[in-house]
Computed example of a mutant assay.
Amino acid sequence: MVGSYNSNVIRETNQFIENHSGSNDYQILAVGGTGSDFYRKRGTNVAYEYRGVSDVPTFNEVRQIVKMVTTMYNKGEFDELYVCYEHFVNRLISRFRAEKMLPIDDEAIQSQASQDIKVKPMTAEYDVEPSEKEVLNVVLPQYSESLVYGAILDAKTSEHASSSTAMKSASDNADDLISSLELQYNRARQAAITTEITEITGGQEALSQQ
């Protein structure tokens, strides 16, 4: 029971696909069974799915996902990868995000950073050892892992918040229903007692007149 969480994510993702350039040629890489089942039933190409994400996702789970999608990207199975999820704002509000994960470029990094803090363009030059390429070969996979891990944690937080809100609403509705039924029961019980008293009183009067 997660309220409208899943339907919101799917609706916003579909809208993003429609608005994104070149959206006629796309495939879905689904984390979780709901999205995978939804797109498979509609004949969409679900190229990869990961089911059974734990309530508290571990970094090893994310590393497995990132390794697979990175391999697919390197094989040329797709040329861009966006992570679509619900960003947690508070218990009542979450906002859809679609973050570019691959290819990693300056624009994507600046866009990701600007969502959390204000950043200024870097103009300084640095000497890198052993080399820029070797450093990036280590840093970029870690960046991808942290991006996906953060998105999954964010999405899970939004899911739990939506579930909590939905369950509270269901509990409140159940309490209201119980109160209403108790009131109806008490009224019916009172009416039955009144009827019995009336019948007993009427019987006594009839006997006294004999």
Rank of each mutant, 00 (worst) to 15 (best):
V2T: 10
G3T: 06
S4P: 02
Y5E: 06
S7A: 14
T13M: 13
N19T: 08
H20D: 14
S23K: 11
I28C: 03
L29Y: 08
A30F: 01
A30I: 01
G33T: 10
D37T: 10
D37Q: 09
K41L: 11
R42C: 07
N45C: 09
V46C: 13
Y48P: 03
Y50D: 08
R51M: 09
R51C: 08
G52I: 08
G52N: 07
V56Y: 13
N60A: 08
I65E: 03
N74H: 13
E77K: 09
F88H: 12
I93T: 11
I93P: 03
S94C: 09
A98E: 02
E99K: 04
K100E: 04
I104Y: 08
I104W: 09
I104N: 09
D105T: 13
S111T: 06
A113R: 10
S114C: 14
S114L: 13
K118E: 12
T123N: 11
A124D: 15
E125K: 05
D127V: 14
V128N: 10
E129K: 07
P130D: 05
S131W: 01
V135W: 00
L136F: 01
P141A: 13
Q142L: 01
Q142M: 05
E145K: 01
S146C: 05
L147A: 14
Y149I: 15
G150D: 00
L153S: 14
K156M: 07
S162G: 07
S164A: 00
T165K: 05
M167I: 12
S169P: 01
A174T: 06
D176W: 14
I178T: 08
Q184I: 07
A188Y: 08
R189K: 12
A191K: 09
I193Y: 06
T194H: 10
Q204R: 12
